[in-house]
């Protein structure tokens, strides 16, 4: 890999709640190189968003707590930075597209001021420059009539338009690192294609790196260089996109790929992985997937499998791969 821009090492994040401790992220290590797109996929509630927010130091503490690990951006430890430094990183280097637009957009300001004001404070643009840049960004993300829409409020936008406002906001400062948490879920496939092209062009032009969180495995297949798969706060598999799709090694990944609905035929019922995710405040011993795994063995109930490199660049945490095959 080229020089890693982002290095997450052994990150654990927990929430200290009234009813107990919830381990949201447990021992996750991820490296993202310059110009690389890393896709993070996995079970709903497995810790993808919390991992992403940790990079920006945006996990609410309390109740959240970084229990262990480090996050390094361009070699510097994010958690050792002063408030001043982290503000600079957030405003100019790392940008984030949040999973739910309304959690990050303000209902009482116009769309234009929400995109434009940071451009003035962070990049020192004049009012006029910021407005022109904002209209240009709205246009780039496919908002029709941008010169009118710039003065509207978010409640006057559709779900997908709000998502694109956030994208415009994130991309307007030419970040070197983009964290995109489900950035295209509210978009139809044609506008999704436009957005993915826009992001690709930014990767090419600025050598931008991308941490791409999504449930859309079709998008992952075409947009990402490498993929990490999360289940119940653990990273359970990681490898190149080709490897993960052609040769998945963790039973959760295999089940996930089998659950994708098909476009060519209509099946009456789909094939999900049986069972439900474990209680994260009282997780099972051993491999967190064992109550649902069709290949579970005795050892799976006792010991957490090690995250091991099975072939160059392809890692998985599963006892099936720890023992010499019988």
């Amino acid at each position: 890999m080229s020089e890693p821009v982002l290095e997450i090492d052994n990150l654990s994040v927990r929430f200290n709640l009234k009813r107990g401790v919830l381990r949201a992220v447990d021992g996750v290590s991820i490296k993202v190189g310059k110009g690389e797109t890393f896709g993070l996929v996995g079970e709903s509630g497995s810790g993808k968003t919390v991992t992403a927010r940790s990079i920006m130091r945006l996990v609410p503490t309390p109740p959240g707590e970084i229990a262990s690990g480090t996050v390094r951006f361009e070699g510097r430890d994010i958690y050792q930075m002063s408030d001043e430094e982290i503000r600079e990183i957030r405003g100019q280097h790392i940008a984030m597209v949040f999973q739910e637009p309304m959690s990050a957009l303000n209902p009482v300001f116009t769309v234009g001021s929400q995109i434009g004001d940071p451009l003035r404070t962070n990049l020192g643009m004049s009012k006029q420059e910021a407005r022109e840049r904002t209209i240009e960004m709205l246009q780039l993300v496919g908002i029709p009539s941008p010169a009118t829409r710039i003065d509207n409020y978010v409640h006057e936008f559709s779900g997908g338009m709000r998502q694109r406002v956030m994208l415009a906001m994130a991309l307007s400062c030419d970040p070197t690192f983009l964290i995109a948490d489900e950035p295209t879920t509210a978009l139809d496939v044609t506008i999704q294609a436009v957005i993915l092209e826009l992001i690709t062009s930014m990767i090419e032009r600025f050598d931008m790196s991308l941490l791409f969180i999504t449930h859309n495995l079709g998008v992952v297949a075409h947009a990402c260089d490498n993929i990490g798969v999360m289940y119940a706060s653990h990273l359970v598999e990681m490898g190149s996109t080709e490897e993960i799709f052609a040769n998945p090694q963790h039973p959760y990944t295999v089940g996930l790929l089998r659950s994708i609905p098909r476009l060519d035929v209509q099946e009456k019922f789909l094939t999900p992985i049986d069972g439900t995710v474990c209680n994260m405040m009282d997780p099972p011993q051993g491999c967190k997937f064992h109550p649902r795994c069709t290949q579970a063995m005795d050892i799976c109930k006792e010991r957490i499998p090690e995250f091991k490199e099975l072939s160059p660049g392809h890692f998985a945490a599963c006892h099936l791969h720890e023992q010499p095959t019988v």
């Binding site: 709903s44 449930h215 495995l217 609905p261 789909l270």
Partner: peptide, 9 residues
Amino acid sequence: SALDVSIQA
């Protein structure tokens, strides 16, 4: 739209 494909299924 916000569900992984297994829970979605």
